[in-house]
Every structure is written in C-alpha cells, then in structure tokens.
Amino acid sequence: MLIILIAQAGLFREGVARVARDFEPGIEVICADYRTSAFEDGTSADLLIVDGDHQREALDAIGALRRISVDLPALALLTEIDQPTIDSFMAAGVARCLSKSQSAQALHDAMQVVLAGATSGTTEQTRATTGPATYSRTLTPRQIEVLALVARGESNKSIARQLNIAEGTVKVHLYTVYKALNVESRKQASIAAARLDKVGDAQLHQALDAQLAIKRLLSDLPARRFKRGEVLFHKDAPSDALYYVLRGTITLQEIGVDVGAGTILGEIGLFSPDHRRTCTAFCKSDCELLMVSSTDAMRMYYQDPEFATYLIHLVTRRLEADKLRSKQEGARRSSV
C-alpha cells in the first residue's frame, strides 16, 4: 500500500508518517510539500493524507492530485474542526476530517474507514461478483451483530457482555465471520464490514437502542470528580460541553429529573438556536464524569454517523419527555 502525505516538512509530518506506516505491514509513505507534484512519475497511490491547516494550499494540492487520480481516497488532518471547513474539504473530495488532537489509533481508524469507503465506491457489478458483500449473505443475524461490534472496536469480552453470550461463543462467531469474508484479522474484518449494508444497519439499530459504547468514544478523556452539591451548569448559560456520567447522580433542577451512570447530559444546548442551557444541573451525590467540549462533541457528531444517530435519538426522546411532562403539569393545574 502506498500513502501520499502532504504537509510542511518537520516533526508533525515525520510523526504522522511514522504512525501511518504502523497501520499495517508493507506500507510505504511518500512525504511531499503542498506545491510538490507527487504523481509526476505516474505513481498510483492508495490513500492521500493532507495537513489541512493551510487550507488554501491543501485544497489546491488535493485538487491537483485528484485530477491525476480521480478516485484517490483522501483524509484531512485539522487543528480546528468546524462545519464550514469540513464542507470545504468534503467538496474537494476528502472522505474524512480528523482532529490533530486525536490519538494514533484514531488516525488508524480513520484510515480504515476511508480505505473501506474507497473500496465500496466500485461499480455495482463489481460489488455483486467480488469481495465480502457476496460472502455476507451466509452470515446469520447474530454474526452480523458481532461483526458490527468488532467494526466499532469492541473487545470480545465487551461483545459478549453486550449480546449476553459467552466470550467463547464470540470467538466461534468470529471464526465463521473471518472464513465467510475471506479475511484473517479483526482489522481486515472491520474494513470489510464497512462495505456491508447489513452491518451498517446493525450499528444504527445498536445506536437507536442506546447500546453505543460512549466510553469507547471518550476513552482518551480523563475522569473528573465533583462533590455533592456542585453545579455543573446553570440554566441559560452558554452550552460549552457534554457530560457523561461514570458514577453518581445528577439532578436537572427545573424539571426535577435525576440521571445516573451511563447517561449523557447537556446535549440539547448544543443544538438549541442560541446554544444555551435549558436546565440547571447539580450533583445530588459525589460524581465522576467525562466532559467533552462542545467543539469536540460537534466533531464527533459530524465524523461518527453512529454517534450522530444516537445523539439525535437521545435529543428526540428527551424533548418528547419534556412535552409529556408539560402536558401532565397542565392537566394537573386544570384539575386543581
């Protein structure tokens, strides 16, 4: 596999090149500056990674390279993730934008998704005659569920717990999946999974059923501890973060609702027109939380369809619950 890395010379470029080479054995990374024509010798690359902070130069380089290699899959690395910037790179043909604050594993995951997407861009005839899409017809619904969780990065132990089956059963399912898809590793299975509509459907159902492994998505964040009575945020304050409850109980004061471990809160303010808090939240007990800045939360929303589906479903359910509470409160007042 050949990867072209477009970035200014220096430590950042050398570091990204080293991480990219670790993606799998046999990878070659060619580093080039923005104004360098990396394909003058007719070399055909498998993936383009570009430092997108110098946006104009990066977009020019992407345009020049894609004129030579139309189907070249591309990944942009950015310091700041915002919708206008993402739109600009997507319009230029970039498949994914990744924050530079992410881990090496996050880069590998993004490379995996982008490469899988490039493979899925082949013609319907090719897809019908070759590749894992053909073999997937032999997979059972349970094997599809296991594969969907593997593609999400879950361990065998986590998969067993979520599906309420033995870890040994997970291994048996994976053996069958590997054989059916003609692959030899979890990484290869995950790449193949991105091409299967059934796996995508399973992942969406898991998100809609609130089975999304939020802790996996937030694994790089340190836990923060709060004392009983501490206020996380006040009603009408700017919405600057999401919270995930690891331990303890949070009270949403205005609506009199308590939420506990495994709950996300603060999401509605991210999508409200004025980005303001709709309730005051305080710790009913000592709490341990993960906090995600609004910028990082929106980056995850745009880059992870499963997380976006989960978040939209969560917001909808909570708005419906608020509507029901208002209706019941109105009925109670009328009866007094």
Rank of each mutant, 00 (worst) to 15 (best):
167 E>M: 13
168 G>S: 13
262 G>M: 01
127 R>V: 09
244 Y>K: 00
39 F>N: 11
72 L>V: 07
270 L>W: 02
249 T>N: 10
300 M>C: 02
297 A>F: 00
324 L>P: 00
241 A>N: 08
296 D>W: 00
151 A>M: 03
287 C>H: 01
289 L>Y: 02
280 T>I: 07
256 G>Y: 07
222 P>T: 09
193 A>V: 07
208 L>S: 05
26 G>F: 08
255 I>F: 03
17 A>W: 05
34 Y>M: 06
70 V>S: 12
255 I>A: 05
137 R>S: 13
295 T>W: 01
295 T>Y: 05
151 A>G: 09
22 D>M: 13
182 N>G: 12
333 R>N: 09
160 A>M: 09
330 G>F: 10
140 T>W: 07
251 T>S: 11
283 C>A: 14
66 R>Y: 06
202 A>S: 14
188 Q>E: 15
278 T>K: 02
244 Y>T: 00
38 A>H: 01
281 A>S: 09
49 I>D: 02
64 A>W: 05
151 A>C: 10
25 P>M: 10
3 I>H: 03
198 K>M: 11
308 A>R: 11
244 Y>M: 01
64 A>E: 14
243 Y>F: 13
181 L>C: 06
36 T>G: 02
118 A>M: 05
275 H>D: 04
204 L>F: 09
21 R>D: 04
320 E>L: 13
211 Q>E: 14
303 Q>N: 11
182 N>Q: 15
203 Q>A: 07
289 L>F: 05
184 E>C: 10
16 V>R: 04
119 T>H: 11
195 R>W: 00
86 I>N: 01
202 A>Y: 02
68 I>C: 09
98 L>C: 06
293 S>K: 07
188 Q>H: 08
163 L>T: 06
106 A>H: 10
241 A>D: 03
161 R>V: 10
106 A>T: 06
36 T>Q: 12
188 Q>C: 04
164 N>G: 08
167 E>C: 09
182 N>A: 14
84 P>T: 08
127 R>L: 14
210 A>W: 01
161 R>M: 11
319 L>G: 08
23 F>K: 03
250 I>M: 08
172 V>M: 12
334 S>V: 06
148 A>F: 04
256 G>M: 08
51 D>L: 03
243 Y>K: 00
41 D>C: 06
178 Y>V: 06
82 D>K: 06
225 R>P: 00
218 L>A: 09
197 D>P: 04
226 F>D: 00
272 S>Q: 12
144 I>D: 00
204 L>K: 14
136 S>T: 07
208 L>N: 11
105 Q>L: 15
92 A>L: 09
333 R>H: 10
200 G>E: 07
32 A>I: 05
331 A>Y: 14
220 D>T: 15
233 F>W: 11
22 D>S: 15
181 L>Q: 04
61 A>R: 08
229 G>N: 13
138 T>S: 13
231 V>P: 02
284 K>N: 14
131 G>L: 07
182 N>M: 10
105 Q>K: 12
210 A>V: 01
177 V>Y: 01
49 I>C: 02
10 G>T: 09
220 D>E: 14
93 G>K: 06
334 S>A: 15
322 D>T: 14
293 S>W: 04
